[in-house]
Simulated scan of single mutants.
Amino acid sequence: MIAQGTCLLALDENNGGRLVGFVLAGAQFPEDVEQHRIGAEKMDQNTWGNTSRMLSKIEREANIFERFGVSKVLYSHITSVATSMRGRGLGSRLAATLMDVGRSKGFPAMVAYCTSFYSARQKEALGMQCVHSLAYADYKDAEGRPIFTPFAPHTMASTM
């Protein structure tokens, strides 16, 4: 992703250039959806494996490539902002800048899988639309127990 020129860093110039936020993003193509499913299914039964399987399920159900008739998207994988910098609009500025980067590189759409109420709300405020969601309470293990039980208001994982 770094080689694609689609990742961003936010540095605090008033604090010696300290890293205070970043976005990992990269190109995604239709064939990646099946590769993600296969990779996720091979992962261990731990938090990372469970998260990967859930995101793969959401990715398949959202069906972005067919839904929008596109052959590539800019996929915003992770956005992180230092705790000390939250609430100042830095995450929104990073996402808006990523949209600009995507446009300049010819991406017809940007996709983000938001696992937090706040990240989905942020993307919506930037003009993105929710095209699919999965309630955490509905994502269950083989015994019928929810795999993830985050505190409210984080009740859904959304494809934006």
Rank of each mutant, 00 (worst) to 15 (best):
M99A: 12
V20S: 02
I38F: 11
G39E: 10
V81W: 08
R53V: 06
A25Q: 03
Q129Y: 07
G144R: 00
A142K: 15
F151A: 15
Y139F: 09
N46W: 07
I58H: 00
Y118C: 06
S133A: 10
G5I: 01
T51E: 10
A157R: 03
A109C: 09
S119N: 06
L90K: 05
S76C: 11
A152G: 14
D44W: 13
C130I: 04
A96S: 12
L126G: 01
M128Y: 09
K72M: 04
H154P: 02
E41L: 12
Q28D: 07
S104T: 13
S84D: 13
M54I: 02
F65E: 00
G87T: 03
A109K: 05
V101G: 00
R67H: 12
F148P: 05
A25C: 03
H77D: 09
T6E: 09
T155R: 15
N46V: 08
Q129R: 14
A62T: 06
A142C: 09
L24H: 08
R86F: 00
F65H: 01
D32A: 01
R103T: 11
N50M: 11
H154E: 07
L126N: 02
G89T: 03
T79K: 01
S84A: 11
A157V: 08
T47Q: 14
D100N: 11
R145Y: 12
L126V: 02
M85D: 10
S104C: 07
R60H: 13
K140A: 07
P150C: 08
T83P: 06
A3D: 13
C7R: 02
L24M: 12
A142L: 13
K105G: 07
A40Q: 04
V70Q: 03
V111T: 11
F65W: 01
T155L: 15
S92Q: 13
A62Y: 04
E34Q: 15
G39P: 01
G144W: 00
T51C: 08
A96Y: 07
W48M: 13
F68S: 11
I78Y: 13
R93A: 12
L74R: 04
D32V: 00
S133I: 02
R145H: 14
C130Y: 00
D12K: 02
T97K: 08
L19H: 09
S56C: 05
E59H: 02
P146C: 06
K42F: 11
V73S: 05
K42E: 15
A27I: 08
F107D: 00
I58W: 00
A95C: 10
T155Y: 13
R67D: 09
Y75C: 07
I147A: 01
K42R: 15
S116Q: 14
H132Y: 15
A142W: 14
K140I: 06
